[in-house]
Design a protein around this nucleic acid. Sequence first.
DNA 1: ATAATCTCTACTATGTTAGTAGAGTATACT
DNA 2: AGTATACTCTACTAACATAGTAGAGATTAT
Lengths: 146, 146
Amino acid sequence: MKITYKGDYALKTILDLAGNFRSAPVAINDLSKRLDIPTKFLEQILLDLKRAGFVESRRGKIGGYSLAKEPAKITLGEVVRFIDGPIGPIACVDKQYSGCHDVESCVFRNIWSQVGNSISKIIDQVTFEDLLKRTNKANKTFNYQI
Amino acid sequence: MKITYKGDYALKTILDLAGNFRSAPVAINDLSKRLDIPTKFLEQILLDLKRAGFVESRRGKIGGYSLAKEPAKITLGEVVRFIDGPIGPIACVDKQYSGCHDVESCVFRNIWSQVGNSISKIIDQVTFEDLLKRTNKANKTFNYQI
DNA sequence: ATAATCTCTACTATGTTAGTAGAGTATACT
DNA sequence: AGTATACTCTACTAACATAGTAGAGATTAT
Ligand code: FES
Ligand code: FES
C-alpha cells in the first residue's frame, strides 16, 4: 500500500466535510484554501468521491460539497482502497503482476498476506467519526523504524 | 510500503542463496534462469545487495554469489527496507513530503504510524532461515480483502 | 592466453503521479 | 432574463519512478 497525494488529500477533505456534517455545503475553494490542496486537483478528487458515493454536491451560488453518509459510516479503509487501490504490499495478488509463477508454493505470498491483513485490521476499523474525536488530542505513537 | 519487482527479485534471490549457504557460489546466470529474472537486471540487484553486505561474490571461472551471513541473521525487513525504502505507507514521515503542515496535530499520522509498526512487527521477525523451513509447506492464509 | 564470471556506468522505454487548462452546466438572486 | 457563483467533465502535460538494456572493463581458473 502506498498513500499518494491524491489519497492523502481525499482523506483530509473527507475529514473536513465530516466536521461540517449536516451544515451548509462547503465550496471547493474553501476546502482548497483551508487544506492547502490545489483547487483543480481537488475538483477531480471530489468528483471521484462523489461517484463513489462518499460525498454529495450542490451546484450554484450556495453550492458545495457535503458528506453523503454519517462520519461513523465511512472507514479509512474504504476511502484508501477507492483512491489508492489494493492494500496488499505487492502486486502479485492482482492480475497485473507477472513475477510470481508458482503462486501456490511461494513462501513470500503468505507473508504479504499477513501484512495485508494487519493493515486492513487497522484502517478498516477506524471511521471518520473516530478521527473527528481524536482531532486536537495528543498523538504520541511515533516509534516505528523508518 | 510497496514491494517493487526489484524488491521481489532481491528477496527471491536471497532465499535461493540461503538454500545454497556454504556451498559453491551460484552464478548470476543460474539464478537468473532458475528464478526467471532478467539477467542484466539481476546483476544490478546483486551488486546492490553486495554493497549492503547481504551477499558476497567471487569472480572468475568458478565465481558467483553466496550469502554473506547466515540465513538466520537476515530478516525480510532489512532487505525490503534496503531495496524498496521506508516501510511507512505515506511519505509524510520522510523529508520529501510537503503535504503535511501541522504534523503535530494530524490525526492521520498516528494511523500511518500504527500501520508502519504493524508491518514492521511482521517483516522484521521473519528471517530467511524461517522462510527456508517454510518452503514446500502449505500456505493457507489468504483471506485479506483486496 | 582465454573463457567464464563479476563490475560499473550510462542509457531508455514505459507507466504513474500530480497536477493544469478550458469549456460546459446548474442554481440563486436580482 | 441576466449574471455571478459554483460544480462537471475531458483532455493535456511535466516530472518522476520503475524496469529494464547495452556495452566496455576487471578478475580468476585452467
Ligand atoms: S510473491 Fe507473489 S507468489 Fe510469491
Ligand atoms: S499525513 Fe502526514 S502529518 Fe498528516
